[in-house]
């Protein structure tokens, strides 16, 4: 493993430019996502009523607010710097970005969590951004026609079951590699969600950092070996 790249060089050629592009693109995009509302106002004079806007902001912040911070923190060790900026701008993280990053690293054969792994993972994610964009654009143009010819049961199957199937598949992929850890991730999830009935944000933190903690203990005791 030739990970002995000069840290200064890494800072110059990767960290600094990635950080700059990431900050600018995310904050600019945050502002620009309001343009549909601006259009509604300019073209039709329609604005959400202030009280309804504040009420629904409260509702949505209560539902998702904790994830704004919990998700980046939990995913960072997997995605790395460029992967994090890209994933949170492009969305569809668990069903698309994480699986594509992981498969790119697996096939190219780089060590996950290493600098090389981070680069290959980010390249895999950028490819997935373009592929997904092509598919949703096609959906906007010909989607209705295609849905029309598909049997209802297939459409419902895609809606209800593809996300769980993808999640299961990725879990299977990583269970193969760390078989000792396979019962841990799902075990903590079942305890948190099924028995304790913890809120989702707490469950995700417990799953990610609990699995990492137990992995560390197993690693120290030589039950799991790194590459």
């Amino acid at each position: 493993m030739s990970e002995q790249i000069n840290e200064e060089m890494w800072e110059e050629v990767y960290v600094k430019p990635v950080k700059k592009v990431g900050m600018i693109t995310l904050l600019v995009a945050a502002g620009l996502t309001f343009t549909p509302l601006i259009y509604l106002y300019l073209a039709h004079g329609i604005l959400p009523p202030m009280d309804a806007a504040l009420r629904s902001w409260g509702l949505v912040a209560a539902a998702f607010g904790a994830f704004y911070i919990v998700e980046p923190v939990s995913y960072y060790a997997i995605l790395g710097l460029a992967g994090t900026y890209m994933s949170f701008l492009s969305g569809n993280i668990s069903n698309l970005r994480l699986p594509c990053s992981a498969m790119a690293q697996e096939v190219v054969g780089v060590t996950e969590g290493s600098k090389k792994g981070e680069i290959i993972g980010a390249i895999g994610i950028s490819a997935s951004v373009l592929v997904n964009l092509a598919f949703v654009t096609a959906a906007a143009i010909v989607g209705m026609a295609i849905i029309g010819v598909l049997p209802e049961i297939i459409v419902e199957g895609f809606r209800d079951y593809t996300a769980p199937a993808i999640f299961g598949a990725v879990y299977g992929q990583f269970s193969m590699r760390y078989i000792q850890l396979a019962p841990i991730g799902i075990g903590i999830a079942l305890i948190m969600l099924g028995i304790i009935q913890a809120p989702a944000w707490l469950a995700i933190l417990a799953c990610v950092f609990g699995t990492m903690g137990i992995a560390r203990v197993m690693f120290n005791k030589d039950i799991i070996k790194g590459d």
Binding site: A77, S94, L98, A102, E112, Y171, L181, G185, M212, A215
Partner: peptide, 10 residues
């Protein structure tokens, strides 16, 4: 890898 199993376990 533990991070992945944690996220997808959840």
């Amino acid at each position: 890898g533990a991070g992945m199993l944690g996220v997808f376990g959840y």
